[in-house]
Design a protein around this nucleic acid. Structure first.
Lengths: 251, 251
DNA sequence: CGAACCTCTGAGGGACTTCTGAGCGAACGC
DNA sequence: GCGTTCGCTCAGAAGTCCCTCAGAGGTTCG
């Protein structure tokens, strides 16, 4: 097997790839350079090829050059509105997926109709895990899932997560999770046997504008333990001074 | 089994295909580019191959190239009216299905002549679920239903919907639904075990020009629950912060 | 032309989530 | 062994999300 030729994420996890095995290509369009940078960093970490643009015009130019599989697109752009860009993008590449970024109060407004075509949106402020998860969902549904285990279902030991149904179960028994708990567990499950620091977790699972303490991570880990590890051998472990790991129970 | 070669919708559901297994081909003709964009997005999401045209002349050109199985055709076009286009279309491809889009006040008698020929129409403003359902009906009747479970009947658990008869029953007992309730339930049943956000539901089940709040979705879910889940273990579940799911009762 | 029905708005209340703060115990360094 | 640091958990406040009721306005049908 040509492992060396295989496209992988920086975390070593196999990447979601295009059908020919080359990296997924994503165009990030946002007029805030800091946000665009953070986003593209997170997407590169997924093993994807990323390009950024700051306005509608350069977005179209970038789309022509990169021919992206997906576009992350801020609705509020200096030159045009998102709907016009959406149409032009689909003219350039009819099967491109679009993930809109919107302010909370812009929703309902000009976003109407976009989810009907299978595209999606997230409201600012968002967490990086959410953006990545939505993108993976879009790409998977568009037929980008060459990776066999990249179904809607994820497994670590006897812990199973179905992202589409938003269902988690351990040993067949269903577990109810709040939105934040779900996202935290998803992050852990996407990085099994890997120590994740509280700072890393905070950066990925909480919104980028979260001003609070790393203490919340401890709190939510404790919530998760109560729900996930209750009555079983623990899968969530503390590595003192370093962070947390999720790993399958060794028999 | 050639799973990879199988034509599927983006939602993972098997698609309605042509008898040879290739995607159904649809031509969308409307002079409003936004509407054409939303429509073609929704139809692509069904796994179909779509092409758009903005007037009668390019519609005919598109029909020559694409040789579509069905045409979604606005009656009011800038250059000709839809009925003239229909005649020319039938010369190009006699067995093509046509779904007319009309304003509410368009002359009824001319439309009546259409439906006699097996074609169909919807009045603006319409919901995308309605357009897709009508098209599926037309295509099915025209012999496009290679998919065996693509009959007029749909089942989730003990919940059964007959789309043609517009009848719904749970555990054999008939349920009366209003038009909106019916369409909402159809959307849920076409996406079982899949969390649907209020925005998604609004975009598909409500008319594209609906300006109201996502709150109506909650309201209609509550109506549906009273009729569908009354006296049974619930099938409609709220996923807080994410949306709603319909799933069969687990034994 | 009236009655029944359907759709949507608004408001109230309840349930759930999220985060802060504080106390306590365990692990670590010296 | 002792003090300090680190992490866990409880309790509660504030906020958010969701459900339901009641009723207005519109439409359809008899």
């Amino acid at each position: 097997m040509l492992v060396s030729a295989m496209n992988t994420t920086r975390s070593g996890r196999p990447a979601l790839t295009r059908p020919d095995g080359t990296p997924v290509r994503v165009l990030v369009v946002d007029d805030d350079p800091d946000l665009a940078e953070v986003l593209s960093g997170a997407l590169r970490y997924e093993g994807w090829e990323v390009r950024t643009a700051g306005d509608g015009a350069s977005a179209l130019a970038g789309a022509h050059e990169l021919r992206p599989d997906a576009v992350v697109l801020d609705v509020m752009l200096p030159d045009t509105d998102g709907f016009a860009v959406l149409r032009s993008l689909h003219e350039v590449k009819p099967d491109v997926c679009v993930l809109f970024l919107t302010a909370r109060d812009t929703v309902e407004d000009r976003i109407a109709g976009i989810t009907a075509g299978g595209d999606d949106y997230v409201t600012k402020p968002f967490s990086l895990e959410e953006v990545v998860a939505r993108l993976r969902g879009l790409l998977r549904r568009a037929g980008m899932a060459r990776q066999q285990e990249e179904g809607p279902r994820m497994t670590v030991g006897d812990l199973v997560m179905d992202e589409e149904a938003r269902e988690v179960s351990r040993d067949g028994r269903l577990i109810e999770l709040s939105p934040t708990e779900f996202e935290l567990l998803r992050f852990l499950m996407r990085n099994p046997r890997r120590v994740l620091s509280k700072a890393q977790i905070l950066d990925r699972v909480w919104s980028y504008d979260f001003g609070g303490q790393a203490h919340v991570v401890e709190l939510y880990i404790s919530y998760l333990r109560k729900k996930v590890d209750a009555g079983h051998a623990p899968m969530i472990h503390t590595v003192r001074g370093a962070g947390y790991v999720l790993k399958p129970v060794v028999r």
